[in-house]
């Protein structure tokens, strides 16, 4: 049984180069498009927040200015921002050729991301309000769900990029990841797209933190 990649398929060197460029370009533009898509998802939450806040139906937007536990909020916020900073720093070091630095930064970012994820889930068990008690309470639950989703995506992407770097490093030697080899280029493009998303997650997390804990 042949794979789809094998069925009478041959490429000239120029075609292989063209397809590699298209592949790298796909990761680049796909990463940005994914951020655009995610922006619209989070914008729906932001719209719901401000819509219900301005409507203030039955004066039940936020009775007594009730707020979700701020210590959890700060912890999740700081962990998310730390994840973003580590990912961006690691990416810069990787561009400078320091693969080990990227791996250390990546594992640190993964750890902070998982911590943020656990805290975000844990926070739900200690909310001082019932989910349907107010508009704020409802949108906060929505925010928690979306933030959990964001952190799961971030952690998955970080973990798979790290796992791939270790596998490729094991199979071909560490320096292969910095070479012009097709797999290495593909991996670096993936890391770049992932870094943009993690950075976006940190920025959007900061914005949503301000909305739900500071406003």
């Amino acid at each position: 049984m042949k794979t789809i990649q094998d069925q009478g398929y041959t490429s000239t060197p120029e075609e292989a180069e063209f397809e590699l460029r298209a592949h790298i370009g796909s990761i680049w533009s796909g990463g940005r498009l994914f951020i655009g898509m995610y922006t619209f998802l989070l914008a729906s939450l932001v719209f719901a927040y401000f819509y219900l806040r301005s409507a203030n139906n039955g004066l039940l937007w936020r009775p007594d200015h009730i707020t979700a536990p701020t210590h959890y909020g700060w912890a999740v916020f700081l962990a998310t921002v730390a994840t973003g900073i580590m990912a961006v720093t690691g990416q810069r070091r990787l561009r400078g050729g320091a693969l080990i630095d990227w791996q250390v930064a990546g594992w640190t970012a993964l750890t902070t991301s998982v911590i943020a994820l656990i805290l975000q889930i844990w926070e739900l068990s200690s909310l001082p309000f019932y989910p349907g008690s107010s508009g704020y309470a409802s949108t906060f639950i929505g925010f928690s769900v979306f933030n959990i989703m964001t952190l799961v995506i971030t952690s998955f992407w970080l973990e798979t990029a790290l796992a791939r770097s270790h596998r490729l490093g094991r199979e071909r030697g560490r320096n292969a990841l910095l070479s012009t080899d097709a797999d290495a280029q593909s991996w670096r493009a993936n890391v770049s797209a992932m870094t943009y998303f993690v950075g976006f997650a940190a920025l959007s997390g900061a914005f949503l933190f301000a909305m739900f804990y500071q406003l």
Binding site: A55, P131, G132, S134, G142
Partner: peptide, 22 residues
Amino acid sequence: GVFGLLDRTVQTAFYVTEHGGS
């Protein structure tokens, strides 16, 4: 859809006007 499911499952009030939703 997620907001609607939250209303039905964990009893948020995104679309329930009487509880601060709309």
